[in-house]
Design a protein around this nucleic acid. Structure first.
Lengths: 183, 183
DNA sequence: TAGTAACCGGACTGGCTCGTCCGTTTCTGG
DNA sequence: CCAGAAACGGACGAGCCAGTCCGGTTACTA
């Protein structure tokens, strides 16, 4: 493994990652690196020292969120009621998208980066298993895959968030879940 | 009314509008004014002479699309089968979003401009009537309004278009329509 | 405690964008 | 055909951004 970072550098790195995650969540991936550095209390050169490019920083934030989500799915997979497990996953993903723009905006921007591609691959595998179980239980249409669910839920929610009504996204998730359930 | 434009100016204005519509459709509203001007065969100062700001140009393109869509809804309103009329509208809007990014990206960017706000107001009124008829016919959930339908359909489709599969959006529209129909 | 490598951030570069200015060209009406 | 108004577009300004450089500072180690 690479050599240990100096203590101050470690602290700064953590602050940068936290600030980036916050700002990406609140205002999307278009916030400037300068602003992230400012919130972290460092110069923006310090950001570029740890992440060769802005996309690499986004990838770090996004891949962490993907791994967190994968952990959730892993738990959902041991639930007895497969249909309920699937719905719980969708609602959980919904909550994430509703309060955090990073995943939805950042993922398409850095799917190519190996770090993110790998995490997404693992997540997708888990989601596929969740889907297959729900389909076998007769609780889910047969013609949907992991990416379909992610895209439908993600974009429906992001669409809802431009509205003044803050909880509108829940109604949209209901509609999508209804559409996804077997007719 | 304002005085007539000179013949060459009229021609250039038309070329600018066409080029802008094409480029916004293909690559979204982030294409630069320079590029639009280049495709139109004019200098970019000519664009700014007709439209004080880039958003004003976007508004011109978007409001035209809205009026076209409103004309379609007006026709749909005289169909006998209210549920079928609603579904036809959704599919039509789907086709538009699937081959044109301008409306989805441009509308949120210039809803404030009176030109666009007015067109959108009229369109929404028509959609509300279409929705009300479908609801009375028992073909549509009671808890959706015009903006909900526009947002759900628009964002589901835009989400589908990042995928390699070009006709994926149709499956997503099916899911949303299923979710919107009465359970 | 002193030497050194790691780290820091202000200043800089280059590129892109929207929007303006002004000298030149082109249309048009008399 | 010609004068003047209208329109044109190249050049410019300002602002923002990602990414680099380098002289000064700070933390670890012996």
């Amino acid at each position: 493994m690479s050599t240990q970072l100096r203590a101050d550098a470690q602290r700064n790195l953590a602050r940068v990652l936290d600030s980036a995650a916050e700002l990406f969540a609140e205002r999307g991936c278009d916030v400037s690196v300068d602003e992230i550095a400012r919130r972290a209390g460092v110069g923006h050169a310090t950001v570029f020292r740890r992440f060769p490019t802005k996309d690499a920083l986004i990838a770090a934030v996004v891949s962490k969120q993907i791994r967190d989500l994968a952990a959730f799915v892993e738990e959902a997979l041991v639930e007895e009621d497969a249909g309920e497990a699937f719905r719980a996953f969708v609602w959980h993903a919904g909550e994430i998208h509703a309060r955090d723009r990073a995943l939805y905006e950042g993922l398409p921007r850095c799917v190519e980066m190996p770090e993110v591609a790998e995490a997404k691959g693992e997540l997708n595998e888990l989601i596929e298993r969740l889907i297959a179980r729900a389909q076998e239980a007769g609780a889910l249409r047969r013609d949907v895959a992991a990416d379909d669910v992610s895209t439908l839920v993600g974009s429906a929610i992001r669409g809802a968030l431009d509205s003044p009504e803050p909880e509108l996204w829940r109604r949209y998730v209901e509609v999508v879940l209804d559409g996804l359930s077997t007719a």
